[in-house]
C-alpha cells in the first residue's frame, strides 16, 4: 500500500505528448488543474468540473477521458496526450485540425480541444464510422457556439481523408 498524505504535495510524473514531465500535487488536486497550472499545458480547458461538458477530455493511455474526473496522483506513470500534441509539427495542422478550420467547426474554441481528442482516438479505432456513430461518440461534448453541424461536416471529411491515406 502506497499512502500519499492529504495535506502534503507529492511528486507526480508522467509522459505528456511524448515528453517526461513532473510536478507536485496534493492527493485532491484535479488533473485539469495539474496539467494547466502546474505543468503549464493550458490547451485543455475546464468547462464544468463534473464530467458532463467534455471540454477537458484528454487521452490517458490512448483513450479519451475526462481530466476533471481524474486526480493528478492517479496518472502517475501514465502516458497522456493533449491538444498540444496533435499537430505533426509547429506551423502545421493535423488532418482533423485542418478539416475543422476548413468547415468553421469552431468559434470560440473553448470546447474544441476536448472534441479533437475524442475524435482523434475515435477515428483511429473506427476508421469506417458513419455519421450516426460519429455523432454518438461526440455527444459526450457540449459546444455552445457552432450548433454542431459544422463539426459533423468536419469530422466526416476528416474521416474520409484519413481513409484515403490509409488506403493509399
Amino acid at each position: 500500500m502506497h499512502k500519499l498524505a492529504a495535506a502534503s504535495r507529492h511528486l507526480v510524473r508522467f509522459e505528456l505528448n511524448g515528453k517526461a514531465v513532473e510536478g507536485l500535487a496534493e492527493p485532491r488536486t484535479l488533473l485539469t488543474d495539474f496539467i494547466r497550472h502546474e505543468i503549464g499545458a493550458t490547451g485543455t480547458h475546464v468547462g464544468c468540473e463534473h464530467g458532463v461538458c467534455g471540454a477537458c477530455t484528454i487521452q490517458i493511455d490512448g483513450v479519451p477521458a475526462r481530466a476533471c474526473l481524474t486526480l493528478a496522483v492517479q496518472v502517475d506513470g501514465a502516458k497522456l496526450r493533449t491538444v498540444e500534441g496533435l499537430a505533426p509539427e509547429q506551423g502545421r495542422l493535423s488532418i482533423i485540425q485542418e478539416s475543422f478550420r476548413k468547415h468553421h467547426a469552431l468559434q470560440c474554441g473553448f470546447c474544441t480541444a476536448g472534441i479533437l481528442m475524442s475524435l482523434d482516438a475515435f477515428l483511429k479505432a473506427n476508421p469506417d464510422a458513419d455519421e450516426e456513430a460519429l455523432r454518438e461518440n461526440l455527444s459526450g461534448h457540449i459546444c455552445r457556439c457552432t450548433g454542431y453541424a459544422p463539426i459533423v461536416a468536419a469530422a466526416l471529411e476528416a474521416a474520409e481523408k484519413l481513409r484515403e491515406i490509409r488506403n493509399a
Partner: peptide, 21 residues
Amino acid sequence: MKPAQFDYLRAESIGDVHRAL
C-alpha cells in the same frame, strides 16, 4: 468546486484494500 482534503491510498493487492477498509 474543488474536493476537500483526503489521503490517497494506492492499493497493490486485494489485501491492501481489505486492511484499509
